[in-house]
Amino acid sequence: MYNFEFVKPGSVAEAVAALKDEEAQPLSGGQTLIPTMKQRLNMPGTLVSLTGIPELVGVSADGGTLTIGGATTHAQVAAEATAYPALAALAGNIGDPAVRNRGTIGGSLANNDPAACYPSAALASGATIVTNVREIAADDYFQGMFTTALDEGEIITGVKFPTPEKANYQKFEQPASRFALTGVFVAKYADGVRVAVTGASEEGVFRWTEAEAALSSNFSADAVDGLTASADGLIGDLHGTPEYRANLIKVLTKRAVAAAA
């Protein structure tokens, strides 16, 4: 890979300062970034490591909200997000144990890989992405494949998840990468049900609003029976056609509801 300057700040303020450099990029675990850099597809002048900043790490629950620091590893979320078991389970199934010890929630959300797990949880939970400058609602945050509302140099310092009454995540793995070929996160709140789908769409994570409506009035797998997820705009590749992914969306939604209920 191309060489770069490595910086490991001890605070968010130092990190923000270091990221002012146009050629600087944040490094938050690097489980996706480093393989990309090995292929010389990415060329940062400086990498600013976020994993040594204590204020970015931790899981805390308070009054119906679970807050996770941006540089918290998947392994730590899996172990400590007991207030939101579906989220802990999702984190405990990302990649493999070694990847979970390095990869972070902030890194995953900032990258917004269309097949990543976390975006579906954030969107289905109506989470708030907290950065060093503002708070962004999940509905506004995800803006298509590998695209988010983050500005250059903006750091995810934390994510606030309203804890649901019931929730479940179902991942159907792509056979090679083990990312989500399709994943569905269902979360039931007092004011309604949210369903977010990852892995399936050319536009990245999205909400299946028809299922949300049906499940908000009847939270049972049967409620989804009459619905059909549209294959329009879904990904077609060597691991599955758009029609196959559309089928998975429905099957996984039903399974998530059944598992949650």
Binding site: L27, Q31, P35, A75, N101, R102
Partner: peptide, 24 residues
Amino acid sequence: SQCGACVVHVNGKPVKSCTMFANE
């Protein structure tokens, strides 16, 4: 970062040493 032939323990936890900078 798939095969795991490079797994070592860093501060007691398994990581893929091919997907971590030495500086880290």
